[in-house]
Write a protein that binds this DNA or RNA. Structure first.
Lengths: 129, 129
DNA sequence: CCACTAGCTTACCGAAAAGTGGGTACCCGC
DNA sequence: GCGGGTACCCACTTTTCGGTAAGCTAGTGG
């Protein structure tokens, strides 16, 4: 176990093990999981595994390219499991790994909260774009 | 209160109140708070308010432009409070609003978990870039 | 009196992300 | 044999992101 990021916040210079340090590898993964589509894909797969086409229809507005790219990225990071049945027509199932499920449990409250907060706000949340 | 995003996941078509729908306004805010620098700034401000220069030094690698842009965005979304004492040389304090603090409590576990997971992983987490 | 500081803003430009349109392979139903 | 469905990949273009550099204000140290 490593230091809490709270310790980092106390210090003037953050330790290299937290994403506040520019050379920390966690920044890369953090970028992946907080990417525009990455969040939605992980949350979508949190409930149940889905096929390619299902995901594409479900995460509205994502292009095929971005879906493929996002899935490959998340697979590379060990969050998503890709299972291709060798059948024709092709059928590929995507699901979360154990690590992906852990991530989902952190992302779901975030998405839920943002969604709720925006919906609840009477005055527009943003003054400018 | 609105529907849980879980209901959305059960349905074939997600309701317009969740970020799965392409026209949902929460997508915009979600993009802000999950942006590369947005996450780090909110988490940094979660512990204590900071001045411009402090933040700039603390969130390593962020350019002045990006810091200003991120802060303006988060201020527009109501997450960050900007207090400029009219003194010269200028002194500006940034802190989280109540809403910002709520957000921080969701982001901290995420950052912590990613940081821990990456640090704990022996084999490289990502197969490809 | 000149440089230096803090906290920005704006203009400019290259890089990277993301959208578009096409193609592929294979089989099925008509 | 033609079109449609599935799950992609590749090339091209557009859009956005993000970094560099300069400028601005006003007081302060040398």
């Amino acid at each position: 176990m490593q230091e809490s990021i709270w310790n980092a916040i106390h210090a003037d210079e953050p330790p290299a093990t937290t994403p506040f340090a520019s050379n920390c590898p966690s920044r890369v993964v953090l970028d992946h999981v907080t990417s525009k589509w990455g969040v939605l894909v992980v949350v979508a797969l949190s409930r149940r595994s889905m096929r390619w086409g299902e995901l594409h229809r479900y995460v509205e507005g994502i292009s095929e390219k971005m879906l493929a790219q996002t899935l490959r990225l998340l697979e590379g990071d060990g969050f998503v499991l890709r299972e291709s049945q060798g059948t024709v027509p092709p059928r590929v199932d995507y699901s979360l790994t154990e690590r992906g499920r852990e991530l989902g449990e952190l992302l779901i409250p975030l998405v839920q909260w943002v969604s709720d907060t925006v919906a609840r706000t009477d005055q527009p949340l943003r003054a400018s774009a």
